[in-house]
Simulated scan of single mutants.
Amino acid sequence: MFEQLDLFSNLRGTISEPYTVSQLTGHIRRLIEGDPTLSDLWVEGEVSNFSRASSGHCYFTLKDTATQMSCVMWRSVVQTQTYLPARGDFVLAHGYVGVYEAGGRYQLYVDQLQPAGLGDLYVKFEQLKARLEAEGLFDPARKRPLPPFPRRIGVVTSPAAAALRDVLNVLSRRYPLAEVLLSPTSVQGDAAPPQIVAALEALNARPGEEAVDVIIVARGG
């Protein structure tokens, strides 16, 4: 006869009083605001998602090749600025790091902003776009009309990607009549480009009645 053991019985009663989400966020805010390094610093990065709200406040993202952070510039600061950035600008931003408690995230509150040239990411993007345009890949004559009611839809993505779940979720709600074929591939890393090409070629090679009517190439992030 076996006895079912409760592996957690010895732990009961030893858990400390839990924090509420608000208490924990407030504690993190106090730690950040108490750090002198974070109260007066310059940050360099590339601007994306710049917007100016009807209130006059500006919101944008600073990023580099590895990560990104949210930034806020209040209207009173905006009114003193002679320069406001555009997407792809590389900037120097001065301010302090604080916590937006309602959203549970830290962000940079900017009080000075100055240009430092175009960001490397934006320059590379524009160079790639120019090269593809020179190859004629954006020529409207190359575009094929989308079928209004595709019977078979090919999807090129990773089987583990959140993008696949999103595609299937939308199709199940909006167009459940279509047959969906997954052509699996990696969607990141050095191996991704040739695998994506091979996945597309595999779908395009399907003959006659087995052909797909349209292909979705998807990834998240």
Rank of each mutant, 00 (worst) to 15 (best):
F8E: 12
G34K: 09
P36S: 12
Q107G: 03
V123C: 06
R174V: 03
P150M: 03
I32T: 12
Q114F: 05
P36A: 10
Y122R: 06
L31W: 00
T65E: 15
D35F: 02
P85L: 02
A134Y: 08
L41A: 09
E179W: 07
V156K: 08
L38Q: 09
A130T: 12
R144T: 11
Q23N: 08
H27F: 13
L108E: 05
A93R: 08
N204S: 13
A53C: 07
L38V: 08
A66G: 12
R174H: 02
R173Q: 14
R174G: 03
A162H: 04
I32P: 06
R75Y: 11
D89H: 12
T61E: 08
G117T: 10
R87F: 02
E126K: 15
V43F: 09
V180R: 09
M69D: 02
L137S: 07
A198I: 12
P145C: 05
Y106L: 08
A93Y: 04
S158C: 09
G95P: 09
A192P: 08
T185A: 15
I153A: 02
T185V: 05
P147S: 11
L92H: 13
P115C: 01
L128I: 13
D213G: 12
K143T: 07
G56Q: 11
E33P: 01
A205D: 13
R105L: 12
S48C: 05
E133P: 01
Q114L: 13
G56S: 10
G88A: 01
L137V: 00
R206E: 09
R29F: 07
R144M: 11
R144Q: 14
T65H: 14
G189L: 02
F60D: 00
L200T: 02
S76Y: 12
A202M: 07
P36L: 04
P36D: 08
G119F: 03
W74C: 04
Y122N: 03
E44R: 15
E209G: 13
H27M: 13
E3M: 09
G103K: 14
